[in-house]
Design a binder for these strands. Structure first.
Lengths: 124, 124
DNA sequence: GTGAATGCAAAAGCTTTGCACTCGA
DNA sequence: TCGAGTGCAAAGCTTTTGCATTCAC
């Protein structure tokens, strides 16, 4: 994998935030440093970085978000402000495995909680 | 909510399968009975039925799927054949709640396991 | 030098929407 | 009857792709 300026910058943007930006938001951030980057390159690089295990894609009802923290951890999606929060990893996988039919092999666990974050909850 | 033939048939299709069809697949099924149904009506009805609590939308990396079983339960997505399977409800919510920051209110829990189903796993 | 990566623009999904017509209550 | 719902087609988004050019190695 060739480390182009675009690729490096996309990775840097994702590494320095915990806000789980969309591809469009990554583009905006990257353009503050490299103004001529195209949206196509952002998508291509997000895919390449994902395949290299450096970036994780989070699919929610609100769209696809990207995360440089690839260790498995659950997310909380606020249904009012659409922000995505990281949660600590709370899952005893034993309980899950017990629910699996014979012959099913798990490679990933996506756990997403939805609701209202503390900030939105304190507003009327 | 007016119970049109289209709406009734869409609900019937979803109720008689456990295969979590996409909107396109719902359309195909409904058209065996009502050949002139449009894709727009399928989407509009899925939305209406969802808002009425009669249908659940499942957002996965493979696209949106629909389910007439609205009781919360986790899913297993096979990464080879893309089929979606129902799992029994195994989650002790207490463990999850402990992971939540102060002030966050949970309205839904989406748990998705990914991997290889027994059928695909037994093939090379 | 050379092939992987880029920018640009077009294309390809998937989902929503505008509009005149239909039909369920 | 009459307004919610429909079919059709167009529009809207997001994501992917083709192609000539650029640039990291």
């Amino acid at each position: 994998m060739r480390m182009t300026r675009q690729r490096r910058e996309i990775l840097a943007v994702l590494s320095r935030t915990r806000s789980h930006p969309s591809a469009e938001e990554v583009l905006r951030q990257v353009r503050t440093t490299l103004p001529r980057v195209s949206l196509g390159s952002v998508y291509r690089n997000l895919k390449t970085l994902r395949e290299a295990g450096l970036v994780r894609e989070i699919v929610t009802a609100e769209g696809r978000r990207y995360d440089a923290v690839t260790a498995p951890h659950p997310h909380f999606v606020c249904e009012r402000c659409s922000r995505v929060f990281d949660l600590a990893r709370p899952l005893p996988p034993r309980a899950l495995r017990r629910a699996l039919p014979q012959g099913f092999a798990v490679s990933q666990i996506h756990l997403e909680l939805r609701g209202t974050c503390s900030e939105c909850g304190s507003q009327p």
